[in-house]
Simulated scan of single mutants.
Amino acid sequence: MGYRVVDTDAVEPAPDRPCDQRALSEPAGLTQMAVNRFVAEPGEQIPLAYHYHDEQEEAFFVLSGTLHVETPEETYEVGPNDLFAVEPESPQRAFNPEDATEAVDVVAVGAPPSADDVHAYEPEP
């Protein structure tokens, strides 16, 4: 059996992200899912680009603030204690708008973990 407690504040933020992103899978010893914690200040987005995955399912659980998720059909507003789920092949871009009054704190889970199945998405003008 294996158990771990991870102090997410002790995990170093990724240096190349548009917001504060802490990759938690490795410190937790997880190999079957990707787990990240994001804190996006007003005007920051969570992913590097508007994107979709071939096989990965994603879930965003909002701890505080309001997460905005742009999709081809609409932009969702996801508040504290709500979960936003994304099926494979569903384009999305999660962000905190510039006019927000506070940061948004989110735990994101993706499974299966894969860096090779992500694709940039260009929305129609």
Results as ranks from 00 to 15, higher is better:
residue 103 A to N: 11
residue 19 C to P: 03
residue 39 V to P: 08
residue 19 C to M: 06
residue 33 M to E: 06
residue 59 A to P: 05
residue 77 E to L: 06
residue 90 S to I: 07
residue 113 P to Y: 01
residue 62 V to D: 01
residue 62 V to S: 05
residue 51 H to G: 11
residue 76 Y to A: 07
residue 114 S to M: 08
residue 23 A to W: 07
residue 80 P to A: 14
residue 48 L to Y: 10
residue 86 V to R: 00
residue 32 Q to K: 14
residue 99 D to P: 02
residue 62 V to A: 08
residue 7 D to Y: 01
residue 120 A to D: 13
residue 119 H to M: 05
residue 31 T to R: 08
residue 74 E to K: 11
residue 122 E to G: 06
residue 115 A to S: 13
residue 50 Y to R: 10
residue 45 Q to P: 04
residue 98 E to Q: 15
residue 28 A to S: 07
residue 48 L to A: 12
residue 71 T to L: 08
residue 43 G to P: 09
residue 63 L to N: 04
residue 12 E to L: 13
residue 51 H to D: 11
residue 81 N to P: 03
residue 6 V to Q: 00
residue 103 A to G: 10
residue 113 P to A: 04
residue 32 Q to V: 13
residue 12 E to H: 12
residue 29 G to P: 07
residue 33 M to R: 10
residue 123 P to A: 14
residue 19 C to R: 03
residue 107 V to L: 11
residue 18 P to V: 03
residue 59 A to C: 10
residue 119 H to K: 03
residue 113 P to T: 03
residue 40 A to R: 03
residue 118 V to F: 02
residue 87 E to C: 09
residue 3 Y to R: 11
residue 63 L to S: 02
residue 23 A to G: 11
residue 105 D to N: 04
residue 20 D to Q: 08
residue 72 P to R: 11
residue 125 P to D: 15
residue 16 D to G: 03
residue 45 Q to F: 08
residue 120 A to E: 13
residue 114 S to A: 10
residue 94 A to W: 01
residue 38 F to R: 01
residue 10 A to M: 09
residue 76 Y to S: 08
residue 108 A to K: 12
residue 9 D to R: 12
residue 39 V to Q: 06
residue 27 P to A: 01
residue 7 D to N: 08
residue 98 E to I: 05
residue 81 N to W: 15
residue 94 A to S: 14
residue 28 A to T: 00
residue 15 P to Y: 05
residue 3 Y to S: 15
residue 19 C to N: 07
residue 7 D to E: 15
